[in-house]
Design a protein around this nucleic acid. Structure first.
Lengths: 337, 337
DNA sequence: CTGTTAGCGCGTTCAT
DNA sequence: ATGAACGCGCTAACAG
């Protein structure tokens, strides 16, 4: 069922049928009617691939993340996909989630993906402070938006949480609760979100006049296992921290486990704060204090910005900064004395 | 940089260049060399869309899941994607994750997706006992494999865990520990995995001669919140269960929270068993007994089966049944007396 | 208003 | 061993 057979059965030329279907004004109302009726009756659908070849548009966008072992943050990816696809579906666009391994093959895989021309635009997640993928997207002039900012790349559209502010605020809160030895269990510092959270953390320390030596920073994988491992080490220090800021909830849950295994009570003896408000955190024991983060809304914002970028909008002011909210729960409390 | 310009710069015809590039035997070795050299030098890549139009192949496969609010099982989707893409990448195939909302628009969206011709094959997750999506894939003759079996559909290739055996075994273990009132907090029964887990559960009850009335089954969303809600109700029964089998870990974590709020100790007063071996379970308090499930391996299997199906293999014996493993942890213990 | 024609970029059969 | 010519299915510039 091609446009050809449809045209023949109508006794019209292919181009007339095409223009009728695509809503051109230079076709008579009567003809348009006939064409639409016949198309519906014969259940004609334009061949998408031929359509793509002729127009250069694919009708799909890619949501790209990096995948690597030892990363339990996968649920957020699907949440973002949910928000993105919800918006793009209304525009008849497909959202395709794609994962690229974060190893030595990364850039060649990324390049292969871009060369595949499967999509009209890209949403790139998990940005790094200096992100070669962003550079390549810009070089290729692919419309894109990032989830998370960068630091050393040329300007681009982005959606991000105010990581600095969130960690500054949460750390300050711990200071107000009397904590003077606060550790940060952070993600790898080349990940931009981790970098920012550390900045916020240090700002709060400095404002409070806390010594850096009493407030160690560790970099680790984003897993409960890593969180437990690092927290166990921290608790063996001569002057162990009385509070631990954790870059994500999974790490925080691991840290709580370590605290309990050391015979201490999270929230009472050692405070723990996570990030992400993951659904199980509220059911942890004690419930996990965390920083809430509207991931699905971010997905919607990403989609809306991408539509603007694909529409040729100037990229410079296309950004959305979300303010996360500290959720105080029992894992966070006054310093023990 | 099309094949045309490449051919011109070589003083060859388009067809010769094409055949040289595609490894046809009827082209001289010398010419082949020249063509390859020039292609590399000029960085020629065939236009993927034109290639797709000419061949009918897209070089991509879709991993499709249904998305809906109140479902915390999203991490498994990314794990599967990881396994699938790992295998398919070696074949130069792209893996695209796509989510379709599980509501009244589902089938029209699914149809639109299939009509988009963005992929050569499909992996369909979260099967239902009677799955209209499977029926449509068969009608359209799209090569596909499901993650999870169906019951009322025509035969198809699948990968699945032995849900019946896993829940039968875990429930039997609870019986051996002395439990006589065991509840099942299950997913919606039209989801095939939930249906199967209930079958296994009931088999164990029957074998042990336990009364159905003492062993209630509840159907709920796959969230910690729902788990807590249902468990709270269960604990208010006149003869509350001494053990709770939960269809997923998130529900189990919620159930444990409910048990604690009721002043009881999970594992000592009320045993809890989950499913999925989610990474935070081992750090729960007490550590969560669960059923381990090699999700990434399943992803690899899915990819391998799909390659066979796309290769025209007969579908009837294309299936992989995984045996999950019960992991006994402290949330599971002898019945209190 | 409608039809003719020319791409889009590639794969492939059929002569030579 | 090579080239000419056609098909894939559709869009769009041009002519009438």
């Amino acid at each position: 069922m091609s446009i050809q057979t449809l045209a023949q059965s109508l006794g019209l030329s292919i181009s007339t049928v095409s223009r009728a279907l695509n809503g051109y004004s230079d076709v008579s109302a009567a003809t348009r009617e006939r064409v639409f009726e016949a198309a519906k009756r014969m259940n004609y659908k334009p061949h998408p691939v031929a359509h793509r070849l002729a127009t250069g548009k694919t009708g799909a966008i890619a949501l790209i993340t990096s995948i690597r072992p030892g990363n339990d943050q996968e649920a957020t990816f699907v949440s973002i996909m949910r928000g993105v696809s919800q918006v793009l579906r209304q525009r008849q666009l497909f959202t395709m989630g794609m994962g690229i391994p974060m190893d030595e093959t990364e850039m060649s895989e990324f390049e292969r993906l871009l060369s595949g021309r499967l999509f009209d635009g890209v949403i790139l997640t998990r940005t790094r402070t200096n992100d070669p993928r962003v550079a390549l997207l810009q070089e290729r002039r692919v419309p894109f938006v990032t989830y998370g900012r960068t630091q050393d790349n040329a300007p681009h559209a982005w959606v991000d949480a105010d990581n600095v502010g969130a960690f500054e605020q949460a750390t300050r809160k711990l200071v107000e609760l009397g904590h003077r030895r606060i550790a940060l269990i952070n993600g790898m510092p080349h990940m931009n979100f981790a970098n920012q959270r550390e900045v916020g953390f240090r700002q709060a320390l400095q404002a409070a006049g806390l010594s850096e030596s009493a407030c160690p920073v560790h970099y680790t994988e984003l897993t409960a296992e890593s969180g437990e491992h690092v927290a166990t080490q921290l608790l063996q220090l001569k002057s162990p921290p009385t509070a631990m800021m954790c870059c994500v909830d999974a790490v925080a849950l691991g840290a709580m486990a370590a605290i309990k295994k050391a015979g201490l009570r999270p929230g009472a003896d050692v405070s723990v704060v996570g990030y992400g408000n993951s659904p199980v955190g509220i059911f942890a024991d004690p419930p996990l204090a965390t920083i809430d983060h509207a991931v699905i809304d971010n997905g919607r914002s990403l989609a809306e910005l991408l539509l603007l970028v694909m529409n040729g909008e100037n990229v410079h002011n296309l950004c959305v900064l979300e303010e996360p909210v500290l959720i105080e729960r029992a894992s966070m409390g006054p310093v023990a004395r």
